[in-house]
Design a protein around this nucleic acid. Structure first.
Lengths: 204, 204, 204, 204
DNA sequence: AATGAATGAGTTTTCATTCAT
DNA sequence: TATGAATGAAAACTCATTCAT
């Protein structure tokens, strides 16, 4: 058990160190040696746990995304109103900034917008799909206007959130407690309201 | 003059080649030699026109954004309604996809690097500011609700557009003529409507 | 005793595994881990029995040559005619191919590494010396012409045999039962006859 | 022309340096940097002329064998008696030792690798074939006994020569002028005589 | 302007060997 | 004995950049 947890520790230490180093210098400028040094181990050890520097980044991405997706799915199955579900999804994504800024820094800078994308499309697509399903349900329940394409709407919603995260990463948007809360409200207010079917009261 | 235009041609050829090569392999994986080969010149020549490979990318960014910015400014000064101006800005940005997919590919994939360059590409920041001004004017004119932060709203608006472009780059969103037109309408419909002050009719 | 034989087994297993692995990938491309895996033990264990990877190869060489040399010496002391002794030496060396192709593969492919070390030269020199003594005896007994240098003759004889083995290793010479038998006959026929003093019948 | 010859010089300098370095430390122990240093150039330059360290060795092999092969072919077409042709082939191969000991050192020590390269260095195989043809012609003309396999005979002949070269490389065979001359005579005396059809006079 | 030979800093990765358990 | 996590030396190779021509 001790051995196993030491192993787990090392791997975890390497992953955490990688996030910090990637956040600080960017993936490409980060050397494997930097990660190892940050983790306090010899660089060779990294290759015990990961096949390459690339795989380290991929692992960070996959593990994080898996978690986020699980949370989003939970929201999806919560039975709440579509509008409320979108709010919760926004909260999950936006609050991750305060929880682990370095991780968001890496995600935003290297993964989502990163050049080596391509393969990771699947995970992103999954997130879009979940949001899309929420939108679609909102439409079928009459809460959302059905004259907008749900797929496009989910892309817009997600893009808005990602750009806010990017704003925080770049330091061009206030990210204090109030800033995060306001961002959350604003995304829902703007995109949510934009999706809301307002023709009903007028048509009545 | 002939010489000057030959010079201009070479520079332009290198820049165009760089866009194609960056689009194909990404900035980091692209070698200076690849760009030169694509342009049909010796790689040493690249250093007559640019100080470094990095400067080539920076130039692509700057030139593109300068152009986009000019177009956005024109819209801003057109005197049209804020809502209509946003529609036009969305049109400018989204239609660039059909005009030059490789360029958009590079812009979208390497934004992070553009971010690294930070304000070196002042033009990007300027474009943001222009959008924000439009939103702000819309608010002061009573067309847009003023309970949302204009800076946040512009980030949301821009993020929505960028994510749609990303969707096209990744091939997960339809990008035919119809696709582009619908994307344009949808962004304005959702974000525009979301920004619209709907309390007026109710309040009346 | 049980422990001792288990030890012997492990050591032997490692040695045998090394021969297979070296034969497959060559000494340099073979990793210590490959050998251990082939032997079914942890790679650390190899260092209980051998000081280094190099020593493993050396041991394979030494053990094999010790055995071959003993066989050659036995022939040497058999009292048979020189010509017949050469035939038997050829048989010993050539038949080793069918007995253990992997071993011959390693011996043939890595001999030159012996040169790098210089130490292994001794064993080869010993083999040459034995053959040389047989030739010399043949000469003094009048069976072999004495106008050829015995040392050179032994090198020629051995070189012929080694090249045949090489031919089999490379797959450019037939190595079925018949092939081996024919090779044996041919070496003796050619080199043996070449050494034979044919002046006697003419001189008579 | 100047440029071309400078280029040629650099390439040649690298190749010559490689032979010296490989001869001194062996292929594997030689670092690319050693070769470059020996040639007096930066190591990066080696990669302008060769794709890899391996290709350098391959080139040494190929160029040498191309030359040797040409010489052997000339002998083959000389019209001389088969026996005499073998003598000349032996002379060509054995005299290369005095001409360029380092080159022979490399050729002999790294044969294995040459073998690994297998048919990539087609020239080696071709040289073998040439010897075989000489033997076969000797047989059809009645000069050589036809009860030995020509392919085997050529292997034996070549093996004898290679082992003599090895003897010189290892320093266990005298390699003065006299040594080389005697080696030449002895190979022909032994293998040549061994191939000679001596049954004719008896059969008469 | 144009070329491409030449440079050399820089980095990932491999893998033999060690050693705590 | 036996394991395999941990170490770190070592080296090939890349490629942006320079510069003589």
């Amino acid at each position: 058990m001790t051995e196993r947890s030491i192993t787990a520790d090392r791997r975890r230490a390497l992953l955490d160190a990688a996030v910090r180093v990637f956040a600080r210098r960017g993936y490409h400028a980060s050397r494997v040696g930097d990660i190892a040094e940050e983790a306090g181990v010899a660089h060779g050890l990294l290759y015990h746990y990961f096949a390459s520097k690339e795989e380290v980044l991929e692992t960070v991405f996959r593990e994080t995304w898996t978690e986020l997706l699980a949370a989003v799915r939970e929201v999806e199955e919560s039975g709440a109103a579509a509008q409320e579900q979108l709010r919760q999804v926004a909260a999950i994504l936006l609050r991750s900034w305060r929880r682990d800024p370095d991780l968001v820094r890496v995600l935003v800078r290297e993964v989502t917008r990163g050049a080596e994308l391509g393969r990771r499309v699947q995970e992103i697509t999954d997130a879009f799909a979940a949001i899309e399903r929420i939108v679609r349900r909102g439409q079928s329940e009459g809460a959302f206007r059905d004259d907008v394409d749900a797929a496009l709407a989910s892309v817009i919603f997600y893009g808005a959130i990602e750009e806010i995260l990017t704003g925080w990463v770049l330091g061009i948007l206030p990210d204090g407690d109030g800033g995060v809360a306001r961002a959350e409200q604003t995304v829902v207010a703007v995109v949510g309201a934009g999706l809301t079917d307002t023709r009903v009261p007028t048509g009545a």
